[in-house]
């Protein structure tokens, strides 16, 4: 459903961050992209919904190449791609409910959005989702009054509110403690299963990736160096991805 062909990106000409990435994401399952910092994982995931413009290549999603799309067409496609961020990226001064409903902004006209006139079914779904992510009763709280784990739950609710066909998550647990990280990963896994949508997650934590992902993609220096079921990830492969071996002890 999502296939990436010969994707390349360089922010500075001659210094590619991604070279020739080829990936196919199936219609279900959790895919984890692991790799050292600065290897282009975030760039790759941001190229998919063109928050970062690819330099070359194709990204085919639901039968359309996203790379050549006009702004208007791109907005239409972005509605189908949910995104969860490392630093949650909630609008701090808005309430939890407003943040969750902002997942519907692609469907609601600005005129209605400014007056907070969202369709009643959207509001009902927002309350339902807040229940699912464990934040019933927080609808009126301001986003900046929440803890990190709670904020990420709001971030996930906002992405799911879009009714996306695919969910992208850029280091969703890197700013959280180990226990909260597992809870957030579990939540993402539950959503992937219950809604039957594929989830693509960037992460640092190899153990967490092995535990939750069906498929792992290992990246090093802007290229894919491993792609397979998480069971096949050996210490030798990890050495190719991250380099060195002392950290594996």
């Amino acid at each position: 459903m999502l296939s990436i062909r010969h994707l390349a990106k360089s922010y500075v000409p001659g210094k590619p961050v991604l070279n020739d990435i080829n990936l196919d994401i199936a219609a279900r399952g959790i895919t984890a992209i692991i790799g050292p910092s600065g290897t282009g994982k975030s760039t790759l995931i941001r190229c998919i919904n063109r928050l970062v413009e690819p330099s070359a290549g194709e990204i085919e999603f639901e039968g359309e190449d996203l790379v050549g799309l006009s702004r208007r067409a791109l907005r239409r496609v972005r509605r189908r791609i949910g995104m969860v961020f490392q630093e949650y990226n909630l609008v701090e001064r808005l309430s939890v409910m407003e943040n969750v409903l902002s997942g519907r902004l692609g469907y609601v006209s600005p005129w209605r959005a400014w007056r907070r006139k969202f369709p009643p079914e959207d509001i009902a779904r927002a309350f339902e989702l807040l229940g699912i992510v464990g934040l019933s009763g927080f609808a009126g709280s301001r986003a900046d009054s929440l803890s990190g784990g709670q904020r990420q739950r709001v971030g996930i609710a906002r992405a799911v509110m879009q009714q996306p066909a695919v969910l992208l998550a850029d280091e969703p647990t890197s700013s959280l403690d180990p226990k909260t990280s597992v809870e957030i990963m579990q939540l993402l896994a539950d959503i992937a299963r219950d809604r039957d949508i594929p989830v693509v997650i960037n992460m640092h934590d190899v153990e967490l990736a092995k535990r939750f992902a069906d498929r792992i993609i290992g990246m090093s220096a802007g290229s894919v160096v491993f792609d397979g079921p998480s069971g096949n990830l050996s210490d030798a492969t990890l050495k190719t991805i991250y380099g060195g071996e002392d950290w594996l002890q």
């Binding site: 919904n49 928050l51 907005r75 239409r76 496609v77 972005r78 509605r79 189908r80 791609i81 995104m83 961020f85 990226n89 909630l90 609008v91 902002s102 997942g103 519907r104 902004l105 692609g106 609601v108 006209s109 600005p110 959005a113 400014w114 971030g155 906002r158 879009q162």
Partner: peptide, 12 residues
């Protein structure tokens, strides 16, 4: 960026 990623139009 997060609001843009939802496919929101410019005014939203």
């Amino acid at each position: 960026e997060a609001v843009r990623a939802t496919g929101a139009p410019f005014m939203s």
